[in-house]
């Protein structure tokens, strides 16, 4: 379990370490002034709208406590919605409402809450209870996603999203994170969630790991992880590439969910995506980074994000 390898072998396997990620990938490709675009989900939403990226529809924004008075009336035509803090961290402060029963709001668990609890949740959000550093925040009301059943049976709680790493315009790696009982329903790999590497060319599962150890079935549901295959994969990759073009972040993590009708939707963008994706994919990302750099250097990188996504699907490392 506690085996060590050598730096040389890591380099040979093409692993990118934290220091290289911070110094080369993030510091050199992600200008600081672009961070608010992705750290503030409301700005991300505006960005997505401006660039025609598919994202859950924004129903409304509550910025001040005073607006709560009109909220009940405002929500009447929307039986399903999600309330999110704009600058929440770690998935805190998300309230999902799946339906109405008279004056009550129905939660996914089937529980009912009155409007007063919804209002209090928004009030807490506004006062910064869920945001990083406790800064005052705004509450976003989003349309509820009708999740594609592709991940059914693969998750202990919640619906998994697909993380695609985009480097200088080219999607290079993808994975999905499945929550487990051990991870307490959270999709965080180092807390025991399962990471499933997805082939960037096909969207099919490459391999799955939990706590760094390869596994074949979901520890709670027993579902065969190697059977995962994301439908409409090219659309996912294209959306990720277009997110990069819209945000201008050179090293980007795009979190994408699949809607049954509307297809891939961008949920969040991340300017500091982690490196665990390498473990989930079972390969290092350095060769892909080098390949993208070479494309740019040789002037062979197409400008259009869709063309870039196609190039990625065709295999960056495959000789054209």
């Amino acid at each position: 379990m506690f085996a060590l390898t050598s730096p040389r072998r890591l380099a040979r396997a093409g692993i990118v370490g934290m220091n290289r990620r911070n110094v080369e990938l993030i510091a050199q490709n992600n200008p600081r002034h672009l961070y608010p675009l992705v750290d503030d989900k409301l700005k991300t939403k505006e960005l997505a709208e401006a660039h025609g990226l598919n994202a859950p529809r924004l129903i409304g924004v509550v910025r001040q406590t005073g607006q709560l008075r009109q909220l009940a009336e405002f929500l009447t035509p929307h039986p399903q919605f999600v309330i999110k803090p704009s600058r929440g961290s770690g998935g805190k402060g998300i309230l999902v409402v799946t339906g109405r029963d008279g004056e009550d709001y129905i939660k996914p668990s089937g529980g009912r809450i009155g409007f007063d609890l919804v209002a209090r949740h928004i009030n807490n959000t506004l006062s910064g209870l869920f945001s990083l550093g406790g800064k005052p925040d705004v509450a976003m009301i989003e349309a509820l996603i009708d999740f594609d059943p592709v991940f059914e049976g693969y998750s202990y709680e919640g619906v998994p999203d697909i993380r695609v790493i985009v480097y200088k315009g080219f999607p290079i790696m993808a994975m999905t994170r499945l929550s487990t009982a051990a991870s307490d329903g959270k999709a965080n790999l180092h807390q025991g969630a399962v990471g499933v590497g997805l082939d960037i060319m096909t969207g099919k599962a490459l391999r799955a790991v939990q706590n760094g150890v390869p596994i074949t079935t979901h520890p709670d549901t027993g579902a065969d992880l190697s059977k995962i295959a994301v439908p409409n994969w090219p659309e996912v990759v294209e959306l990720a590439a277009r997110c990069q073009a819209a945000s201008q972040l050179g090293y980007l993590g795009a979190d994408i969910v699949l809607d049954r009708q509307a297809g891939p939707q961008v949920l969040e963008l991340n300017a500091r995506p982690g490196l665990a994706i390498q473990v989930a994919n079972g390969v290092g990302m350095a060769p892909l980074i080098d390949a993208v750099d070479k494309l740019h250097r040789d002037g062979k990188a197409p400008a259009d994000p869709v063309a870039r996504a196609k190039r990625a699907i065709g295999g960056l490392l495959a000789q054209p």
Binding site: L4, S6, P7, A13, I15, V23, V209, Q278
Partner: peptide, 22 residues
């Protein structure tokens, strides 16, 4: 050290599984 892009000591352990099947 601020511009060091090499591996950290703990990464020799963290990414060790990736060098196994060579």
């Amino acid at each position: 050290i601020g511009q060091y892009t090499g591996y950290r000591l703990n990464e020799l352990w963290r990414f060790e599984p990736l060098t196994r099947d060579e």
